[in-house]
């Protein structure tokens, strides 16, 4: 879980792409997934997702994300199939229409979520926010909020597992509980977690302030984010995807 959001260092084509291009590509894949109505095209988009992961040299991570999403997808698929009444029955209460709609829904979900998670694997958060500020002129305050939120995810999970460990050691049976039971046991422990999080957020604001948070301008970033041939290629590729989604 902790690792799903962490940056994987590398120097692949995808790593070197401008962060803004990566966001653009992600958005286009999402739009294409919603525009198209063809199952086969969605499968194609999924292949594109996986290919991006492989080209970026993060095949392991891609596989982990895919596997994680698959669990949710199977659940949604069954739900959708059982609830759809339209179409010709194929087996028991399952209809052909149901299978097709359910397939599209879960494929869309996977196709849309994969690049969102992959962007974080192949882009440093700071590059992402700095590029948003420099290139897209997003106000720095918003970018800072986003990057701090993402920075705190692993910390939050670390704290959570620390609390569970401490509670297990004093006899709360976390080590034997699973699923919903475990969740209901975690809930009462959220009070200390929230208190420490709020305290920390405030202190982080101070730490940023004394290191010139207010002096930061669009030009402050040390790294610059020029567009290169790779970006042009990626943009053309995404436009082609979009055209395909509309025309096919």
């Amino acid at each position: 879980m902790n690792n799903l959001f962490q940056y994987v260092p590398g120097n692949s084509l995808i790593h070197r792409m401008n962060p803004v291009t990566k966001i653009f590509l992600t958005i286009i894949i999402c739009v294409a997934a919603f525009v198209t109505d063809r199952l086969l095209f969605l499968v194609g988009l999924l292949a594109v997702d996986l290919l991006i992961g492989i080209v970026a040299g993060v095949a392991n991570r891609t596989w982990n994300i895919f596997r994680g999403l698959l669990k949710i997808a199977v659940f949604l698929f069954l739900l959708q199939v059982l609830l759809t009444r339209k179409g010709t029955p194929v087996f028991w209460i399952i209809t052909d229409q149901g299978l097709l709609t359910a397939g599209k829904v879960v494929l869309r979900l996977v196709v849309v979520c994969m690049p969102l998670a992959l962007v974080l694997a192949v882009t440093r958060i700071t590059d992402l926010t700095n590029a948003m500020v420099q290139v897209l002129h997003v106000p720095y305050q918003y970018a800072f909020t986003l990057s701090t939120a993402i920075r705190f995810i692993p910390q939050f999970l670390e704290e959570m597992s620390g609390i569970m460990e401490a509670q297990t050691a004093r006899g709360v049976a976390f080590d034997k509980a699973r699923g919903l039971k475990k969740f209901s046991m975690i809930l009462p422990l959220c009070a200390p977690l929230l208190i420490s999080s709020v305290r920390r957020t405030d202190q982080t604001a101070v730490a940023a302030e004394v290191r010139g948070f207010r002096l930061r301008t669009r030009e402050s970033g040390y790294k610059k984010y020029p567009f290169t041939a790779v970006d042009l290629g990626a943009v053309l590729f995404s436009l082609a995807l979009l055209a395909g989604a509309i025309l096919l």
Partner: peptide, 12 residues
């Protein structure tokens, strides 16, 4: 009994 470095993880 296990006493951790950070008491806040234990107190709930």
């Amino acid at each position: 009994g296990f006493l951790f470095q950070n008491p806040d993880r234990q107190i709930c």
